[in-house]
Design a protein around this nucleic acid. Structure first.
Lengths: 236, 236
DNA sequence: CTGAGGGTTCGGCGGCCGCCGAAGCGTCGC
DNA sequence: GCGACGCTTCGGCGGCCGCCGAACCCTCAG
């Protein structure tokens, strides 16, 4: 009896993501930015009226939040936990897709090379950074997934990040996020967000157009070399 | 373009859980055991033929695996990751349910007190054990979620668990799992499974009937006192 | 004030999908 | 060998839900 209620609840949540159009909206919003209703409609290839209805359901359920501004309606995912949930759900099964055309192929190649996953780095770039940090003892992955003391120092000194408030934050400092292209874990949580933030701010990586894909810059390559002793060649 | 394909993929996965009957199946199987098709059908309140069709979809998608044995068909969740995914999806939104009757109320109270979550402990019991381990420095939660060296010793000596192979396992030693009744994290992963296993084997906790609920025994209460310096009073 | 354009509401259409019962197949117990 | 029983296949029914276009509201620019 109890788990029939629980099942209904689960089905309700899953149904939100079970529609291709709503799912496409969510995937688009995985970049962490706020999108207008029209942008999402065009991206998913549906009429504006259809998009409106879907956005109603998504916001009503608390999956997304919205902000009215002038004649625009901006929508984004509610929080990093929600983004992590969607990413892990989408990544849980192997994709096994043969890219359709050249255009799509280069686009997905760019995404595989490096992208943002809500507020942290993913793709080969994200995995490589995470691996490098593990190799230097900044991350402890032998018995879980945590930032070591050394890692915390590194965030402070090498990256200039203020980690003082992290202990009191509701969000965990370091979290594991599974990648849907690499099928490997990369760094998320406060530390992951801080890394991504600093990389973007310093111009070490740059967004490709208006997509989630990011590209490593020249200064980024040298920075990775200096800070993490990484060979950035394969990531260019 | 790329994320429309990704959206379709996400929708496909979500659709599996978007049906109340299939979702109920999955919630039931969260106890980690193998269920027969008939058991699941009765539990969800549908005809056997309906259950068959649902189980086809679940196994075809790789969410569940099955084992034929005589005239029975046993089915269970594919792996701990799948279980974690379902649990986190189900637990992502507040429940806010008023129990319908006395029967349902005592049943859900038992589940809230203590239960298994696939292969580890959850509910107030699971959270309390996790908190106690954190307090004793066995778990490091200041910068992530990891088993400390001290914690690993404790697993070996206090619990008699062989942790030798853990470093080479594909599965992480300690993982965070969010609880849908407590809205709090508890220990999962290899360590969580080992704790649950030892507790059941030693008779410290016992399953209530054929449900996921577990009950702390007298010897269990003293064991918690000795091993973790816990007051088991509120958990009885 | 007027037109353009983003967003919304509403009605109606179409398809998908979950449900069942009946018939059938295999295994188990006597 | 013969019922009993668990599971499966197949048709057919019904309802839900995602889609659109048309009409409308509101904001912004000139």
């Amino acid at each position: 009896m109890t788990d029939r209620a629980q099942g209904a609840k689960l089905a309700e949540v899953a149904a939100l993501l079970a529609d291709p159009t709503r799912a496409t909206f969510c995937v688009a919003m995985l970049d962490g930015r706020a999108w207008t209703a029209g942008e999402l409609a065009r991206r998913a290839g549906v009429a504006a009226s259809t998009a409106t209805e879907h956005l109603h359901r998504l916001t009503a359920s608390g999956l997304c939040v919205e902000r009215r501004q002038g004649r625009h309606r901006y929508v984004q995912l509610a929080d990093p936990e929600t983004a992590a949930l969607i990413e892990s759900l989408a990544g849980h099964f192997p994709v096994a897709e043969a890219p359709a055309g050249l255009r799509a192929s280069t686009a997905s190649a760019a995404l595989a090379r490096g992208r943002t996953c809500y507020d942290h780095l993913a793709g080969r770039l994200g995995v490589a950074v995470t691996d490098a940090m593990t190799g230097l003892g900044l991350l402890d992955r032998t018995a879980g997934f945590a930032l070591s003391d050394k890692g915390r120092d590194w965030m402070e000194t090498a990256l200039g990040v203020d980690t003082a408030g992290w202990s009191h934050s509701r969000r965990t400092a370091a979290k594991e996020c599974l990648d849907w292209t690499e099928r490997r874990s990369h760094l998320a949580g406060l530390a992951g967000a801080a890394v991504c933030d600093r990389f973007l701010e310093s111009g070490w990586v740059r967004r490709v157009g208006s997509t989630r894909a990011v590209r490593l810059t020249d200064s980024g390559a040298t920075a990775l070399q200096e800070l993490l002793d990484m060979d950035a060649g394969p990531l260019r």
